[in-house]
Nucleic acid binder design. Structure first.
Length: 853
RNA sequence: GCCCGCGUGGUGGAAUGGUAGACACAAGAGACUUAAAAUCUCUGGGCCGGAAGGCCGUGCCGGUUCGAGUCCGGCCGCGGGUACCA
């Protein structure tokens, strides 16, 4: 074949990107005459390089954005950077330099890597959260929240490294030790700032029901995280007459199985007793070892200390229970004190066996009643059980009925009260770190904690800081802390804590609607563009980021920064799977693991080795691509070898978007071959005599309409891989078609339109080559003709006892009775029936027939 | 530990409770070519069989159903989150 031209991705991609730029195709301008559509992908952390996870995420968003443009929407599709955070400080410590330079240089690199992808982004709206213009507005929000009582201070525990004398993030604690010093980590209390998210527990929970276009699993995770429970709160009288101990329990029905009263090591009684008791002080110090994570606390070996205090059982004043301090009781939840029922709680049972405390059964299984030995009996709350001496007179009842009865009983008797509690805790936002948004308050000796004046915002981070010592450089900066008290004018000190980076990402979506405004948002812009119609991001953000953003939208509404309608800011959510890759690890001189990039590793003689040194590396199976593990693949290599359209086509094609995808090098090549095929097909059709007739025009057009239907359905339901499979099939059909020139031209132009969300550059080129009007991105999306989709004949498999044995072809709307007759006359059926009648005959019209014999 | 997912050929995966393996990758065979590349055509879950056909098969065990990859219960394995990684 003499080819007029060759597929050159580099050439056409640059050409069409320039055309879109020139036409300002993706610039979002408010236009009340068009329906708006806001599509947003979770913005990236500027780790340094773009990785395949980013490409996958942004390509998915781009498919949606371009499809919505083609269906007549006014699309907002912005991009920015979540730019504060620890890696910048770690880089400064490891290789020198400044977090700011490191971050902005990474942003430049990543933008350079993103642009060639041809994403339909409005780059004019870009910002980074470390821009003073952004974090200054965040400080203004903080001050508004403070005024509304949405922020407050209280004590909270942090990971403390006693050697480096610094606070550690959970990620910096490895096996209970500080990652740099190797010292055993302790828990220590600091005064911290908190957002009052717990005031919104009920609302955040109830509103989950309105999020119809969120994945059910995300709603369920948030529901469990908020953790609404109804239980009984009551107090145990102390035998020494001191202040009673208040407890909260979700299983008051098991009160007759109480073994001891347990209090948290952080409970006021623990602290009071610690004074002048070196033995207890040592015990509490032991309890405070280890990190603050829920996992560390839950999995730590159970430790207990008998305080010697005793309390009276509320139902029997002669029954005395000991009070123990137990390390698994959290001060943050309930009252920081519990009663233990070892027969029906595994943790309590383990504790009682260890410290030789009594185990008392309160109910048995209906089928096999037997006392608890080493395994606690914890049936579901809906299961009926047999009660032993229940004080409210229950015999056989479910746990839930018993709980309700017990609460009623206690309320009537007046010694307890039914209480609803939530697991959700207030959101601690203070971080003892430099590279974050400064908290805009001042500490004054006379006025106390004073909010900064709005006209002094932004409170900018100082540039002259060093990272040669552990700890927060703002603390040891010679002058930055010094300021005048905004209230009395006397010399005062700035707050040196900065904000959690989750604050930065909790409102960026609102800022995109007016990114250069001198207020956090602008009413008209927020009214027009909010909500985010489609939010796309990783499942790892299912709880924290999304819950914090939901809270922030409410708080911003209270302060008039968002309309009421934006209280739930994300109308639809899609959680994509992660891009995973094997991890390559060697051991460094200090015995710690060193991670290597896939590009630096190769297979030699059946071993995986470092390219440079030949040293063998350990291959750890697939895990989330992560900057800390270096198991990332550079998409730039793929783009420079094959072009952006190939990279885009490939990341969309193989895996369903919600599932994790393991990156392998093969496959990109195949995607490239296919795009070449489409290109050649376009060339061939373009060279046909326009008046040439052929055979099978209608067959081709029928297939085309089916492709329109299936590809559209795939795009609308995030089945991009299914859309692509259909596009492969339709391309194969077209390549083999002998139809006339007009039909083939119509088919290739429709193919270009259907491909344009995925491979926009190639689609534009085909469109132009076939004489399409304007840009394909602006051409209206094709609509399938229902009449062309109707099939005259259907193939129905015949099952005998559920196994497929034969099939028949029948007219689409043949009546059931006719089908039955045909089936019963079929040789495969008659030979098995041997004259007998079938027991049952099931005909699912247009689907399947099952004969039961 | 707790909460939430996922598990299908050599590989990625497809399948409103209705023909398991669409579409692709890798592989094998063939065509074209002096040859190679490129391109095109064909084959392909396992076992038995020349074929027709049969048996088995969606992590494991059990259940519901005319019919289960799909729904239910119990396991096993892997992944995500676990409030200071983002």
């Amino acid at each position: 074949m003499t080819s007029m031209s060759r597929y050159s991705a580099t050439e056409i991609e640059a050409k069409w990107q320039e055309a879109w730029d020139k036409a300002e195709t993706f610039k979002a301008i408010r236009d009340a005459s068009k329906p708006k559509y806001y599509v947003l992908e979770m913005f990236p952390y500027p780790s340094g390089k773009l990785h395949m996870g980013h490409v996958r995420n942004y390509t998915m968003g781009d498919v949606i954005a371009r499809y919505k443009i083609s269906t007549g929407h006014n699309v907002l599709h912005p991009m920015g950077f979540d730019a504060f955070g620890m890696p910048a400080e770690n880089a400064a410590m490891a290789i020198g330099g400044h977090p700011k330079e490191w971050t902005y240089s990474n942003i430049d690199t990543m933008v350079e890597q993103m642009k060639p992808l041809g994403l339909s982004l409005d780059w004019s709206r870009m910002f980074a959260t470390c821009d003073p213009e952004y974090y200054g507005q965040q400080q203004a929000l903080f001050l508004d929240f403070l005024k509304e009582g949405l922020v407050y201070r209280k004590n909270a525990v942090v990971n403390w490294d006693p050697v480096d004398m610094t606070v550690l993030a959970n990620e910096q604690v490895e096996g209970g030790r500080g990652w740099r010093s190797g010292a055993l980590v302790e828990r220590r209390e600091l005064t911290q700032w908190f957002f009052k998210i717990s005031d919104y527990s009920e609302e955040l929970l109830d509103a989950l029901d309105t999020l119809d276009n969120w994945p059910a699993k995300v709603r369920l995770m948030q529901e469990n995280w908020i953790g609404k429970s109804r239980g009984l709160q009551f107090a145990f009288e102390r035998t020494d007459g001191a202040e009673p101990i208040s407890v909260y329990t979700t299983r008051p029905d098991t009160l007759m199985g109480a073994s001891f009263v347990g209090i948290s090591p952080d409970h006021p009684i623990s602290k009071e007793l610690e004074e002048g008791n070196p033995e207890l002080a040592a015990f509490l110090a032991e309890c405070r070892k280890g990190g603050t994570t829920e996992e560390a606390i839950e999995t730590a070996p159970k430790l207990g200390y008998d305080t010697g205090i005793t309390v009276k059982h509320p139902l029997n004043p002669d029954w005395e229970l000991p009070v123990w301090i137990a390390n698994f009781i959290l001060m943050d939840y309930g009252t920081g004190a519990i009663f233990a029922c070892p027969a029906h709680d595994q943790r309590d049972l383990d504790f009682c066996r260890k410290y030789d405390l009594p185990v008392i059964d309160t109910f048995f299984d209906l089928e096999e009643p037997k006392p608890v030995e080493t395994e606690a009996f914890v049936p579901p709350k809906e299961q009926k059980v047999k009660w032993i001496n229940h004080f409210a007179g229950l015999d056989e009842a479910t746990g839930q009925d018993a709980i309700d009865a017990t609460i009623d009983f206690a309320e009537t008797a007046g010694w307890g009260e039914g209480v609803t509690k939530f697991r959700l805790r207030d959101w601690g936002l203070s971080r003892q770190r430099y590279w974050g948004c400064p908290i805009p308050v001042v500490h004054c000796d006379t006025c106390g904690v004073v909010p900064e004046k709005k006209e002094n915002l932004p409170i900018e981070l100082p540039d002259d800081v060093s990272f040669d010592k552990p700890g927060n450089p703002l603390d040891r900066h010679p002058t930055w802390r010094d300021c005048a008290c905004p209230s009395c004018g006397a010399p005062a000190k700035r707050e040196t804590d900065t904000m959690d980076t989750f604050v930065d990402s909790s409102w960026y979506f609102a800022r995109f609607t007016a990114p250069r405004a001198e207020t956090p948002t602008v009413a008209e812009d927020a009214e027009y563009w909010m909500n985010v119609d489609q939010y796309i991001g990783g499942i790892e953000h299912a709880i924290l980021h999304l819950l914090y953003s939901r809270f922030f939208a409410r708080a911003m509404h209270i302060c008039s920064h968002l309309p009421e309608s934006a209280k739930e800011p994300f109308d639809a959510l899609f959680t994509q799977g992660m891009v995973t890759h094997a991890i390559y690890q060697t051991t460094g001189g200090n015995g710690r693991p060193v991670y290597h990039y896939p590009a630096d590793v190769e297979d030699r003689d059946g071993k995986t080795v470092l390219k440079a040194s030949g040293e063998e590396v350990q291959v750890i199976p697939s895990a989330k691509m992560s900057k800390s593990k270096n198991n990332v693949v550079d998409p730039v290599d793929i783009i420079s070898a094959y072009g952006a359209d190939t990279a885009r086509w490939f990341v969309l094609s193989d895996s369903p978007p919600e599932r994790d995808v393991e990156w392998t090098a093969s496959g990109a090549d195949a995607a490239f071959k296919h795009l070449n095929r489409v290109w050649n097909l376009c060339d061939k059709i373009g060279a046909m005599d326009p008046d040439a007739n052929g055979q099978g025009d209608e067959d081709l057009l029928r297939e085309m309409h089916k492709a329109i239907r299936d590809v559209t359905l795939g795009v609308e339901s995030f089945g991009f891989n299914a859309s692509i499979a259909k596009l492969y099939a339709f391309t194969n059909t077209l390549a083999k078609s002998k139809a006339g020139a007009a039909a083939q031209k119509q088919a290739i132009m429709t193919l270009a339109q259907l491909m344009s969300p995925m491979t926009p550059h190639l689609a534009e080129d085909i469109w132009a080559h076939q004489g399409g009007e304007g840009l394909v991105i602006n051409a209206p999306w094709p609509v399938a003709d229902e009449a062309m989709l109707v099939e005259a004949e259907v193939t129905m498999p015949i099952q005998i006892n559920g196994k497929r044995r034969a099939e028949i072809s029948v007219p689409k709307d043949m009546p059931k009775e006719e089908v039955e007759k045909l089936v019963l006359a079929h040789e495969a059926v008659t030979s098995r029936l041997e004259g007998a009648q079938p027991k049952k005959l099931i005909v699912v019209p247009g689907r399947i027939v099952n004969v039961v014999i």
